[in-house]
Computed example of a mutant assay.
Amino acid sequence: MSVTIKDVAKMVGVAPSTVSRVIANHPRISAETSKKVRKAMEDLGYHPNVMAKSLVSKTTRTIGVVLPRPAEELLLNFFFYELIRGVLAQLTRSNYDLLMAGGSNEHEELETVTRLVRSGRVDGLLLLYSRASDPVIHFLHEEKVPFVLLGRSLDYEDVPSVDNDNVQAAFDATNHLIAQGQKRIGFVSGPSKLAMTQDRLMGYRKALTEAGLPFKDSWVVEGEFLLESGYRAMAYIMSQPEPPTALVVIDDVVAFGVLKGLTELNYRIPQDVAIVSFNNIALTELTMPPLSSVDVGTYQLGYTASQMVLRMIQQVEITARQIIPHRLVVRESSLLTVPPHA
């Protein structure tokens, strides 16, 4: 005979409705009661019927994660692995599943998200990017679907989001190079439509302005979050009559491409070109030389974003915009052993 909710409730000495609330991760159930109920479920071998529960509660216990475009970035950039790890940690803890979705262009993305929402396949969504004039964000905002944005919305002030202070992070990275005596500092950027790119470019320019150093359009190169993008950027930026002697790079994987390109061009790092990038993925310690990088708390970004969307689904009040602290991790790629070029 199969074990029922009533059997679990009887063993713990609570009402069956309390067991149901524990299974649903209701916020009003105490941690002590939840622990006792879950232990009884384990001891009795009770497993909730997810399909039946979904029909009754009209929930799927599934969160959709909308990947950035192009989706290949997820497979080639370790930042997204760490981000998804944080998302999964919170969802697993709350007995939710994850469904990944995306599209190769703006139209496909909107079609995919519309289908997920209208078919009731997800209870909420996480968007792992933030772009200007994004029809997906507009659709979700208008439909009042629980969703959380990684980054800040460029179009709506009230969109729930998790982000870093990217202006300050880039300001700190650029100031570090300035403190090393650098005067010609370039910027290897991401796609200009992204809020993160705009904010980091702003922080970079702000640091240069405050230090009285020049900003040159020719020292800023736009690309994608791919190693190849950083590699190609070096052929352009270092061919100039007066190339920069230091670079702020939008992302660690892009910086790996920068390192490769500079090495092939016979530049020494950091003696000829100093580098600081972002995300502080594990491989930054293994490059030659080790890469200085701004740790943006990638795991915490994913964990907090999924926590926020679950609270929205449960109609628990949240802080609409949460900022995850950053810290600059200084390694050999930005520390000069000889004076920089004049």
Rank of each mutant, 00 (worst) to 15 (best):
D123T: 09
A101V: 13
Y129W: 13
S57N: 13
V136M: 11
I84H: 00
K53N: 13
V50P: 04
R93A: 09
P135N: 14
D134F: 02
G86T: 07
G102F: 01
V148P: 03
I63F: 06
F147T: 05
V136R: 09
S130E: 10
V56C: 06
L149V: 04
I84V: 13
S153M: 00
V122C: 04
P135Q: 12
N95T: 11
D155E: 11
A89E: 09
L99D: 10
L127N: 00
K35N: 07
V148F: 00
A101F: 01
V148K: 01
P160V: 07
P48Q: 06
L91P: 10
D134L: 10
Y46G: 01
S104I: 08
G120L: 07
H47P: 12
S133N: 15
F78S: 12
L126N: 01
V65P: 02
D158I: 10
L140T: 04
R118V: 11
R115A: 14
T60V: 08
H138S: 11
L88K: 13
E143Y: 10
S54A: 15
Q90H: 13
L99P: 07
A40Y: 01
T60P: 06
R38H: 01
L150H: 08
Y46E: 02
V122K: 02
T33A: 04
I63G: 02
I84K: 00
V87I: 15
E73R: 01
V37R: 00
H47F: 13
S104V: 09
K53F: 06
A132I: 13
Y129D: 08
E142L: 08
L127R: 03
E109N: 13
V159P: 00
V37M: 03
D43N: 05
N77A: 01
S133F: 09
T112M: 14
L128C: 13
L110N: 09
F80C: 02
T92P: 04
G124V: 06
F80E: 00
F80Y: 15
A132R: 15
D123S: 09
V136Q: 11
V162T: 08
P135K: 10
E32Q: 11
A40V: 01
L127A: 07
N105I: 07
R38V: 03
E157D: 10
K39L: 13
V136E: 10
K39Q: 14
E32C: 02
D134Q: 12
